[in-house]
């Protein structure tokens, strides 16, 4: 890929969720794939959206294994809509979700949803693809 601009990703743990192994591993994957990664640790939707706008990121990735994927996940996308960035950023969520929630996460507006066992190839591939399709970059 001969991109002039590196893909910039903001990563956060959603809410007070405690498990950080997944998000740190993904941060490493994205960095190794040449992306610029901003990891802000635990944060709630307002801080996530605000930081994402300030940093001018292409992608927001949130991680949660704690069951708040629909409540706070929904809030994140709602806020993105209000701030007018829903269509100018790619939204990805990773963690442990019951199967019946996956369609709901799509409805809420996440572009990419990744569970345990997702590989670097899948995640990096998805982000590159989505950035080019959704954002035309």
């Amino acid at each position: 890929m001969s991109e002039e601009k590196r893909i910039k990703v903001l990563l956060a743990k959603l809410g007070v969720e405690v498990h950080w192994r997944g998000v740190i591993t993904v941060a490493g994957m994205l960095r190794d794939a040449g992306m610029e990664v901003v990891y802000i640790g635990n944060a709630f939707p307002p801080e996530i959206i605000e930081t994402a706008i300030q940093e001018g990121v292409d992608v927001i990735g949130v991680s949660t294994l704690g069951g708040n994927h629909l409540t706070l996940g929904g809030e994140l996308l709602e806020l993105a809509k209000q701030k007018g960035v829903k269509d100018s950023m790619v939204f990805v969520i990773g963690g442990v979700f019951p199967p019946y929630d996956i369609p709901k996460l799509k409805d809420v507006g996440f572009d990419g949803i990744f569970g345990p066992g997702a590989t670097q190839e899948e995640i990096v591939g998805f982000i590159k693809d989505a950035v080019s399709k959704k954002l035309g970059k």
Binding site: V16, E17, V18, F44, G66, T71, L72, E75
Partner: peptide, 17 residues
């Protein structure tokens, strides 16, 4: 998680969890 992280169930930090 809110209990582990020491927030009350009605704390804004706890919402959704």
């Amino acid at each position: 998680l809110p209990t582990i992280q020491m927030y009350d169930s009605d704390d804004p930090m706890a919402r959704g969890q």
